[in-house]
Design a binder for these strands. Structure first.
Lengths: 162, 162
DNA sequence: GTCAGTGCAAACTTTTTGCAACTAC
DNA sequence: GTAGTTGCAAAAAGTTTGCACTGAC
């Protein structure tokens, strides 16, 4: 287990405050799960996380994992994506800047978009009375490589019909 | 069962073309499910949809429902939201204008945002080579009414401690 | 007539729950 | 010491699959 990064320390502090404010207990499990999640860059599933906990010599039960994830979502330290059908996909959120993703309808590949332009235009919108914790944009469509594949398939089909 | 609206007719046509292009069969079930979905304004779950099919005197099996929903998602006539934990939440998408939602972290209430400003700023972004089918924004935070509730609770807690 | 699509039920996967043991407060 | 939390296993909920039958092409 590596030393804690400044990000690790920051989110630990934020989680600590959240637990305090909600009169919840600061258990080893909760902080170990948080630390594991913040060692993952990008998305993960419950299964992935449970394996990681095992690797890190801190196995936790599924029940605890689900319960802690719910807390971390409430604490704005984690989000759930709408990617998979039958199982959940999660990702840490370190800051409250808008996050954008590009999702291919065909190959289902997910790419994070890092456009300052897009982020800025999102940040200008402030709903009345609603205090924003974070913003997420999903852009669905067909990625360049799938566009090529589909075009080729269409061509082949037409040739066969001729 | 009411007469078909022009929206109903339009999506039916689009689904027909999709099925044709993918060499899939045009079954009564598929069109009945599409029609039922487009009779729902806002979000729904599989369970809700299955009940509705029953009401409309066109009961379909769960398997067919799931299969058809997958097709409709592929055909860009339906989206899946990341709202619930254990079951999926769907919503029809009639056009390709950006859609925005405001979600309260506390009461989990979901509100559709109809801001032209927000929609326009999203439409200005075009990822290179990626052909967009639709865009969805989720704005997470605390809604006005929950903000009041939380403030009250904090006050009460402080008074008890004094 | 052929084979994709459907219904039904069973299987499988994911998430939640109940309870005894544990531990943070 | 008193709850809130955890682990474990069992239950519940959600989704997928296999197979015989049906109906679109």
């Amino acid at each position: 287990m590596s030393d804690k990064t400044s990000l690790q320390k920051e989110v630990e502090q934020r989680f600590r405050e959240f637990l305090l404010a909600h009169e919840l207990r600061q258990t080893r499990e909760r902080f170990a799960i948080l630390e594991a999640i913040y060692s993952i860059e990008g998305t993960f599933t419950i299964e992935h996380l449970q394996d990681l906990m095992q690797e890190r010599r801190f196995p936790v039960s599924t029940g605890t994992l689900y319960a802690t994830i719910q807390l971390l979502i409430q604490a704005n330290l984690l989000i759930r994506h709408p990617f998979n059908f039958s199982s959940s996909v999660f990702e840490r959120i370190a800051d409250n800047h808008p996050r954008s993703y590009q999702i291919c309808n065909n190959c289902h590949h997910i790419t994070r978009i890092k456009s300052k332009e897009l982020a800025n235009s999102l940040e200008t919108y402030h709903p009345r009375g609603f205090s924003i914790s974070h913003r997420i944009v999903y852009i669905y469509g067909i990625c360049p490589s799938c566009q090529r594949t589909i075009r080729k398939q269409l061509k082949l089909k037409e040739q066969n019909k001729l």
